[in-house]
């Protein structure tokens, strides 16, 4: 996936992507977000999640660490927080080629559902997408991403393993003895 460089409009570490998605939607951002996991134990430490926006509506997703695209990439991004976020503005024309790449396309409401877990934001995003008369893939819902996540035993084992280690470390730190 090749993206021309955009103009950096925001850079920070975030744990919750609700604000990022809402800000992009409300400001009608056309551009992209780079999401770098701060959790080096999950996925590829060098991997970056890429999410593009057209007029504030999420358009395509890609993950450079796992080389996944579309809904799968979103699933990879979803488990990788907290993130270092960089938000860039980029004009429509520069994004056109990427936005025409089918396998990377995501339903517009999916990031709000999967990354933010915010049904209201998802609904607002859908409305915005409809207003802009963008193509929507109504038949593709977020479920396939959730099911794909639950089918990914390796990622889930990593999450469990890491949580277990954290719980053990903290038991000592916090003085729990059971």
């Amino acid at each position: 996936m090749k993206l021309p460089s955009g103009r950096l409009v925001r850079e920070r570490v975030v744990t919750d992507l609700t604000t990022v998605l809402a800000t992009a939607l409300d400001s009608g951002l056309t551009g992209y977000a780079l999401l770098e996991s701060q959790d080096a134990l999950l996925l590829d430490a060098d991997g970056v999640g890429v999410l593009t926006f057209a007029d504030g509506v999420p358009a395509v997703a890609y993950h450079t660490g796992t080389d996944s695209a579309g809904e799968e990439a979103l699933a990879d991004i979803a488990v990788a927080g907290p993130y270092r976020l960089e938000l860039y503005e980029l004009d429509d024309a520069a994004l056109a080629e990427v936005h025409d790449t089918d396998p990377m396309t995501i339903p517009p409401e999916l990031p709000a559902e999967q990354l933010a877990g915010d049904p209201q934001l998802a609904e607002r995003t859908l409305e915005a997408a409809a207003t802009e008369q963008r193509d929507e893939s109504d038949e593709t819902t977020g479920d396939s991403a959730v099911e794909a996540f639950l089918d990914d035993e390796e990622t889930i084992a990593e999450i469990q393993q890491r949580a277990r280690e954290q719980a053990q470390e903290r038991a000592e730190e916090w003085g729990f003895r059971r």
């Binding site: 933010a116 977020g142 959730v146």
Partner: peptide, 12 residues
């Protein structure tokens, strides 16, 4: 909730 962040946190 049937979302990836929620399931992932539930596992934790």
């Amino acid at each position: 909730q049937p979302t990836i962040p929620s399931l992932s946190d539930g596992l934790k």
